[in-house]
């Protein structure tokens, strides 16, 4: 699971008001080489919740992202490289996503988060 996916997910357990962002419990983080596409990054930049994104990258062991970012940074190659790396190349292979409200763990196994709810959470 990459951080783009993480940035889109929340805990949707019945009754949970603020299920975003899910806290990352990283057991195994892998890096995958992904070819950079600037258009894609610019596209995604507007959709990303930056604060959650930076926190998530830190919990994955990557600390090179600026705390705050606005679209003027998209002209900087250095920024784009870091953004690209954090968004698409860092992957949580094993671990869990934890609901900030209920502490329910959504396991991540072989890179795939398991977001299905139990019967009593629907």
């Amino acid at each position: 699971m990459g951080l783009l996916t993480h940035n889109m997910l929340s805990s949707n357990i019945r009754g949970v008001v603020n299920g975003f962002p899910l806290r990352i419990e990283a057991v195994k983080v892998v890096e995958k080489n992904v070819e950079m596409n600037t258009d894609f990054l610019k596209n995604m930049f507007e959709k990303i919740d930056w604060k959650a994104f930076v926190e998530a990258s830190i919990s994955m062991g990557y600390t090179e992202l600026p705390k705050e970012a606005d679209s003027s940074l998209l002209d900087s190659d250095d920024f784009l490289n870091r953004f690209h790396h954090a968004l698409l190349e860092l992957h949580l292979e094993e671990g869990a996503l934890v609901c900030p409200e209920t502490r329910r763990r959504f396991p991540v196994s072989k890179g795939i988060p398991h977001m299905l709810l139990h019967e009593d959470e629907v």
Binding site: N7, L9, G19, V34, K47, L116, L117
Partner: peptide, 26 residues
């Protein structure tokens, strides 16, 4: 080919997208 940026196990009937998330897919 480039691997999918994300695969997840989720239910379309109860999608786990964060509130307020919109207009991300082309």
């Amino acid at each position: 080919l480039e691997m999918p940026v994300g695969l997840l196990r989720a239910d379309n009937n109860l999608p786990p997208w964060r509130p307020g998330l919109k207009e991300v897919f082309d």
